[in-house]
Each structure stands twice: as C-alpha cells, then as structure tokens.
Nucleic acid binder design. Structure first.
Lengths: 139, 139
DNA sequence: CAAAATAATCAGTTAAACTGATTATATAAT
DNA sequence: ATTATATAATCAGTTTAACTGATTATTTTG
C-alpha cells in the first residue's frame, strides 16, 4: 500500500468525488447541485436565517451564497423577505415547492450514500458518521 | 441535530475543504496543488507509469492529467520519456527535485491531517483510515 | 450626529475540469 | 500485408464554480 492511498486527504476526496457524481444524477433533474440542496436543507431547518448566517455555518463564500439563493429563488424554492429587525439582511423561507424538492430527493440521496459506503456494515457507518461529526464540530 | 450536518456528503466535503485549505499553505510555495502532489506521489511509487494509467487509478480526467504533467514537467519534478514498447504513451519518472519536494512537504501534510482530525484519538483515526480505504478500494 | 461596521450585491477575474477533435502509434480483421 | 479500429496524448475552446474588490443600504458605535 502506497502513501497516496493511505492519506486522508486523498481518500476523503475520492469517496466524496464518487458520491457527488451520484448526487448529481438525483439533483440535476431539479436543476440544483448538492450545495444548493444543502442551503435549502439549512433554510428548512432554520427558517428566517440570513444569507450571512448560512454562509458562516456552511462555510460558503458570501458572494457565492448570493448566487445560490438567487438560483433557489428563481426556481421558487425559497423566498427572500426583508428582516424587519435588520433591513440590511433577508429572512429566507423555504416554499412548499422547496419542501417538496427536499422530500423528493432525500431518500435517493441517502441511498446514494449507503451505496457508496456499502463496504461498511451498519455499525461502521454509524461510527464513521460520529467521527465526521466530531471533526466537523471542532472546525 | 439537523439532516444536513448528519449527511455523509456534507461532512466529508467540509472536512476535506478544511484540509485542502491547509494543504495549500504547505504546497503553494512549491507552486503545486494537492492533486499534483498526488500525481507526483503516484509516479514516485509506480515509476514508468503512463498518463493513462495514472488518470485511471486516480480518477482524474485524461486532459486534466496532461496539464498536471505539463506543470510538473515544467517545474522539473517529473520527466516524460517515450515508452519504447508503446510509443503512443510516455513513461513518467520522478526527478531528484521531485523527490525532494515530496520529502519537504510530506511531514507538513500529514501534520495537517492530524491537526484537522485532532478530535479523534489514535485508534479512531486508524479506524477512519481503514474504513475509507475499504470504501475507496471498492470504487 | 458622524464614523465605522455589517448584509447583500455586482462586475469582473481566476481556476479547474471538461468536450470534442486531432495526431501518432498500435492492434485486429480480412 | 493492408485496411479498419482502437488507444495515448494533446490541443483549442467551453463551462462551471468560486473568489476579489468595490458599492449600496442599513445599523451600530463613539
């Protein structure tokens, strides 16, 4: 076994590359990518969030967030309303259409994850998730 | 805990994003990125490989591989020589300079990985590596 | 009230990977 | 042996995603 295929960066990247390709199969019919799906999930979970909040939590560039939200708004998946307590920012809300897209895709996306991680048993998958959450929480 | 921060795709992506940012600090003084470092590691491990072989093994697009190798060759880190058994392909060889770049960076890169994964203990890190290798091997 | 900070946006740039076509060489089929 | 097919590498041009730096509107601080 060589250095490259022992390195975390390489391994994480290749596993992710595989997943993202398959995610795209599910999401492209809805004209969004995995990051936009993530933003939509965030807005569903934390309604009234501002773009700044989402950008910070998801570590997405502020200007990139603008284009993501523009896109989701154009598709009618989220709505921007001015936050009355701070009119510089928007309160984002997911729409019924947005909710239905999340629902339509969720099972396919988790199936994709399971498919890619199929060499692992249930216990290992849970362990992997726990470890990744532990690491992500510390960032 | 919400759906997003429970999803493997999201978690893998964010952990990787963190690592790649730090890898860049180590590698940019040498004017290469993590993928080019990976190609260089591959060539060190499997000398005489063709671009096609590397592209297949590392799942990198063939034309992207051309630019990676162009770049590494320009920097004097690899050499292209025509394979006498199949003059369509090159045999790539790492140079002394290439070896020395690999050596100079390796410790910093593995330290970066450890730093990002620092919430995990040694046993967990090994377990994570084993699981990622298991998944990657199946792809 | 004036100055500094913040949220969102915009125009323009950079960077990475991809598409499709081309050249040189090798392999397979008749 | 000759023709047709396949392969490795390359090139020009496109696409895509994210980033930089400046601007506007609004809020907070001094």
């Amino acid at each position: 076994m060589n250095k490259l295929s022992q390195s975390y960066g390489f391994l994480l990247g290749k596993v992710l590359q595989q997943m993202e390709g398959k995610f795209a199969d599910t999401l492209s019919p809805f004209n969004i990518d995995a990051r936009q799906y993530g933003v939509l999930l965030f807005v569903q979970d934390k309604p009234y969030s501002s773009q700044k909040i989402i950008a910070d939590r998801l570590q997405i560039d502020r200007t990139t967030m603008v284009t993501h939200v523009d896109h989701l708004e154009t598709l009618g998946f989220v709505e921007r309303t001015k936050n009355p307590n701070d009119r510089r920012s928007y309160s984002l809300m997911i729409t019924d259409k947005g909710n239905s897209v999340l629902d339509s895709c969720w099972e396919f996306l988790t199936d994709t994850e399971s498919e890619v991680l199929s060499p692992l048993n249930e216990q290992e998958k849970q362990l992997l998730k726990d470890m990744l959450i532990k690491v992500w929480s510390s960032l």
